[in-house]
């Protein structure tokens, strides 16, 4: 069993929900990213989602686009992000997933990427522009390396697609809570719950919700209907204001809200 699967199993047994904060590797520097990841762990995060910058992040809103621009300017690449995780592993065992776009992985070579990432201590990969329809080889290779290939579902997904994505996804299913890009305004109108129920009818894999969750109140509401909450843009924005007590407080409040 992959570390992420184990984690969700443990949480379920204790009737708890996963807190999954996101940060872009290398924004503003890899040293700071290390500090941030360790702070995530200290503040009770269950899984860390580490963004790897790409020049054309078409699923991301302005906040993460700018973070990627800054990270690219700092010379962060997929190779460096993997080396970063390897280094990070001397300090923490927290489950870690990379989120990046398909082209850097394609260019790296799917097989080589999975082997190197696994070796460095990466537990899962989220690739927003790689639907399972195009991921036959990747899914197979990921399975062989016990890497969780995490696929996404969206409010527009049909029953057919839910079946396909739920079948392919490992670790958890990433439910995109808005019809849109990262950092957009969340709408808590009951439709997320309806969709998650639709997914639950088809699979018993854990469902974590992300895109647009930005406040502890929203996190609390989403945690109540899912297995985990992913918070990206709001954390990236807060981190930019400084890694101070306020940032830590924000993380603690999110942790408190996700139960």
């Amino acid at each position: 069993m992959n570390r992420i699967e184990k984690l969700f199993k443990g949480l379920k047994a204790r009737n708890k929900k996963a807190f999954i904060p996101y940060i872009m590797a290398g924004d503003p520097s890899l040293e700071k990213t290390k500090e941030i990841v360790l702070m995530f762990e200290e503040c009770g995060a269950d899984i860390v989602e580490l963004g790897v910058p790409f020049t054309d992040p078409l699923a991301d809103g302005p906040t993460i686009q700018r973070a990627a621009e800054r990270a690219l300017k700092n010379g962060v690449t997929l190779k460096k992000a993997i080396a970063f995780v390897k280094d990070l592993r001397q300090k923490t065992k927290i489950p870690l997933v990379l989120m990046t776009y398909y082209n850097p992985i394609f260019k790296y070579g799917e097989g080589r990427f999975l082997a190197d990432a696994k070796d460095a201590g990466v537990d899962g990969v989220i690739i927003p522009d790689l639907p399972p329809d195009e991921a036959g080889e990747f899914t197979k290779l990921a399975k062989n390396t016990a890497m969780a290939a995490i696929f996404l579902l969206a409010p527009t997904s049909t029953a057919d697609r839910i079946k396909k994505v739920a079948g392919a996804s490992r670790g958890f299913i990433y439910y995109v809570s808005i019809t849109g890009i990262t950092g957009a305004q969340l709408l808590l109108d009951g439709s997320i719950e309806t969709s998650i129920n639709d997914i639950r009818r088809i699979t018993d894999k854990p469902v974590a919700v992300g895109f647009g969750v930005s406040t502890p109140d929203e996190a609390k509401a989403v945690a109540g209907i899912s297995d985990g909450v992913i918070i990206g843009s709001a954390i990236v924005k807060k981190a930019q204001e400084g890694l101070n007590g306020e940032f830590r407080n924000f993380l603690l409040k999110l942790r408190e809200a996700i139960k």
């Binding site: 398909y102 329809d133 195009e134 996404l152 969206a154 995109v176």
Partner: peptide
């Protein structure tokens, strides 16, 4: 070729 897009767009395509 292919269809390398976020899930949100897959049904529309």
């Amino acid at each position: 070729g292919g269809r390398f897009v976020p899930e949100t767009l897959m049904p529309a395509l």
